[in-house]
Design a protein around this nucleic acid. Structure first.
Lengths: 217, 217
DNA sequence: GACATCGCAGACAGTGTGTCTCGTAAAATT
DNA sequence: AATTTTACGAGACACACTGTCTGCGATGTC
C-alpha cells in the first residue's frame, strides 16, 4: 500500500513502483504468470488502473522490471561477498555459496523460474551474463593458479556452476545447499591428482581451451 | 495442418491434438508464453476456434499437455539408453549424456524453460520427479559399489545432476555438452582418491547419508 | 441407408486492454 | 498566500479474447 503522498514526489513514485513490482510478483506466484492482469495489479496495489499505465505499459514490462530489480540486488550481494577475500579459490567458493543461498531464499517467489520464463528477452539474457561473467573471471584466475581444471573453458564451467546452483532452490535445507556447493566445487577441480601441474594431460579429445565454435550439430 | 478426415476417426483426433500441441509450442517460443491465445492457436493450426475448445479448455491446459508429451518422450528415450548397459556407472553416464543432448536439442523450443514456468502445477513436478527417481536410483547403486561419493545423499546428487544438465541448452556445441557431462561426473565421484574404499572419511561435518530434514534455515 | 461425430462459421455476453477526459488534491514555485 | 505543476482516481470508449451455444455440412460407423 503506497501511502498517499509520501514526503517528496520522487520518493513517492519510487515507493509506488516498488509496490507494483511486489504485488505483481505475489500475484504471479499465487495464480500463475499467465493469469496476471493489469486490472488485478492495480486493484491489489491500491492504485487506479489508469495510474498503473503511467508506470508500466503492460504486464510483461512489470515482470521484466521486477526481474531487473532482483538481478541488481543479487549482483550487489555477490560482489560484496566476493570482495571480502583475495584468493581466487576462496572467492569463487564464497560466491557460489552465497548464490546457492540466494536461490534457496527466492524460491517460492518464482525467482529463477520467472527468469527462465522471460528468457527470450535479451535484457534478461544480458543480466544473467553479468553473473556468468563474474563467475567466469574467478574461474579463469583459478585455472591460471592451478586451483581449477584447465581442460574445460572457464566459460563452460561458469555455465555449469550457474545451472547447477539453481538446483539449490529444490533442496530442503541450508546444510544441503552447502553440500551442493561442495559437489559443484569437486567438479571444478582437476580430475588428475596433479596439484601443481599447470597443464594436466587431458584424458579425452580435448586439449587446451575450448571457447566456442567446434564441431556443431 | 491436420489433413481433414484422416483414415480412422481416432487417428484423426490424435493428429489434430498433436498439431495443436506443436503450433502452441511454436507460438509460445516465438511471441512469449503470455501472449499465446486460443484464437491464435486455432488459426495457426488451421482449425475452428470452437473446435479447439473441444480438445482443450484453455491455453494453460495445452501447455501442460505439451509438457506431458515432452516428458514422456524423453523418459522413454532415457530408459532405452539406460537399459543398453549393465554397470551402474556406465548407465548413469550414458543417461546423463543422453539428457544433455536432449536439453540441447529442445532449446529454442523453450523446453526446460517452459517447464520452469509451469512449475507451480503438481503434474509437472511429478513428471520431473520421475526423471529425478531414475537418476537417483542409478546414483544409489553406484554409491553402493563405490563408484560415486557416499557423503551426499543420492537424492541431492540427483538434483545436482538434473539442474547442472539443463545448462547444456546454453552450450554452443555437442562437444561442449560432452565436456559438461565429464565435469558433472567429476562432482559425483569420491573426493578422496580411494577407488576401492567403501566409506571414505568425509572431510566436513557430514557423516553417513543425509536424505532430508536436518538443520533447517 | 440411418445414425453418431466431427468440423466450421457465426453469434453472444462477459471481461481485460489501452487510451482519453475530467475533477480533485497535494506538492513545488513564486 | 497565491499560483502553477504534478499525480491521482473515476468513468467512458473501442477493441480483442474468452467461453458457450446454435445451425449446417461432411465424414465415419453401424
Amino acid at each position: 500500500m503506497p501511502k498517499l503522498w509520501n514526503e517528496t514526489i520522487e520518493a513517492h513514485r519510487r515507493a509506488v513502483r516498488d509496490a507494483i513490482l511486489n504485488t505483481t510478483a505475489e500475484l504471479a506466484a499465487e495464480h500463475g504468470v499467465r493469469s496476471v492482469t493489469m486490472s488485478q495489479i492495480a486493484e491489489q496495489a491500491g492504485i487506479g488502473r489508469a495510474t498503473l499505465y503511467k508506470y508500466f505499459p503492460d504486464v510483461e514490462a512489470i515482470l521484466l522490471a521486477w526481474h531487473d530489480r532482483q538481478i541488481t540486488d543479487h549482483l550487489g550481494q555477490l560482489a560484496e561477498v566476493r570482495d571480502q577475500t583475495d584468493e581466487a579459490g576462496e572467492r569463487l567458493e564464497a560466491v557460489l555459496r552465497a548464490f546457492a543461498h540466494i536461490s534457496r531464499r527466492s524460491r517460492g517467489h518464482h525467482g529463477t523460474e520467472l527468469a527462465a520464463f522471460l528468457h527470450r528477452d535479451e535484457r534478461v539474457a544480458r543480466a544473467q551474463q553479468q553473473l556468468h561473467g563474474m563467475i567466469r573471471d574467478l574461474l579463469a584466475e583459478g585455472a591460471r593458479t592451478g586451483d581449477f581444471r584447465g581442460d574445460v573453458a572457464p566459460d563452460e564451467l561458469a555455465t555449469y556452476c550457474l545451472h547447477a546452483l539453481t538446483g539449490a532452490a529444490a533442496l530442503p535445507s541450508d546444510a544441503a545447499a552447502e553440500r551442493l556447493v561442495t559437489v559443484i566445487m569437486s567438479g571444478l577441480r582437476d580430475a588428475e591428482p596433479a596439484p601443481t601441474g599447470r597443464r594436466p594431460t587431458s584424458r579425452h579429445e580435448s586439449h587446451g581451451h575450448h571457447s566456442s565454435g567446434d564441431s556443431e550439430h
